[in-house]
């Protein structure tokens, strides 16, 4: 048999110009009915980033170092979830504070602060490891300018959003802000979400929170994210509530 000529299918289709209008994976080309090798591997890499993000760990040492500049107490806490596999299958455990962590927090509750900031791995520690310091660099000055006292910063592992209720309650904080890694997508595996809750206590549900999501370069910028959070904090303190009651005005700071 003679040598077979190489076949390199075009990794594109004639309607490639439509890519101008969407990030969707259009005009990928094909070989037979399958993806060309180049496109297949692009996809695999995006999924690899997402998978690595889900299994990434909170970089406690690096974050502790990064956050020194704020001269705040930094505490390390964890949920009742023992590992990632359990975290993924039992979200309820990720919402409960481990007793040893409760012991660490309780003494600080004797001198309550206005705000407790919680840095949580969630579903993408990658996002948190990258974006926490630059985001807090913008956010903390805005909060301090409101005259608010910020309590210890908690680094929380295997954490779900509602873990902040237990932490805030133990610290007797008036409000919690939790920065948490969002579920990775193929286009972005490092988005940070921020939820704030006024009068945190165990048993609250999502309608008691306000959310600012997709914080990352290429999504909502650090500056915009910090402004949104700061605005919501201000509103929460002035109206002494958070959640659905604040929701309507979120749009006001879009401009």
């Amino acid at each position: 048999m003679d040598k077979i000529k190489r076949y390199t299918p075009p990794s594109t289709d004639p309607w490639l110009p439509l890519q101008e209008f969407t990030q969707a994976r259009i005009a990928l080309g094909r070989t037979g009915s399958s993806l060309p090798t180049e496109q297949l591997l692009h996809f695999n890499m995006a999924h690899a980033h997402a998978r690595d993000a889900v299994y990434a760990e909170l970089a406690v040492d690096k974050l502790t170092d990064d956050l020194k500049v704020f001269e705040l107490v930094i505490l390390q806490v964890k949920s009742m979830s023992a590992n990632r596999a359990q975290y993924l299958q039992r979200p309820d455990l990720g919402r409960l504070l481990h007793p040893t962590s409760a012991e660490i927090l309780t003494p600080y509750g004797e001198h309550p602060a206005d705000i407790s900031i919680i840095i949580a791995d969630g579903l993408s520690a990658s996002g948190i490891n990258h974006h926490t310091a630059p985001l807090l660099n913008k956010l903390i000055p805005l909060l301090q300018a409101q005259g608010l006292v910020i309590g210890p910063i908690c680094l929380a592992e295997q954490a779900r959003v509602a873990l902040a209720d237990h932490i805030g309650h133990a610290l007797q904080a008036k409000l919690t802000i939790i920065l948490i890694g969002e579920r990775p997508g193929l286009s972005a595996a490092d988005s940070v979400g921020s939820y704030l809750t006024y009068a945190p206590r165990p048993g609250l549900t999502d309608d008691a929170r306000n959310c600012v999501s997709n914080i990352r370069p290429g999504g909502l910028s650090y500056k915009m994210g910090a402004q949104k959070i700061s605005y919501l904090v201000q509103q929460a303190f002035s109206r002494q509530l958070s959640g659905v009651g604040l929701k309507d005005e979120e749009g006001l700071i879009e401009r």
Partner: peptide, 25 residues
Amino acid sequence: CVPGADDIMLNYQSASFHDALYLRQ
């Protein structure tokens, strides 16, 4: 079916137009 199996709005992976062609073929 979504383009390239990647739904950029709902952030999950479904089948692609290519996958449907594969099945039919």
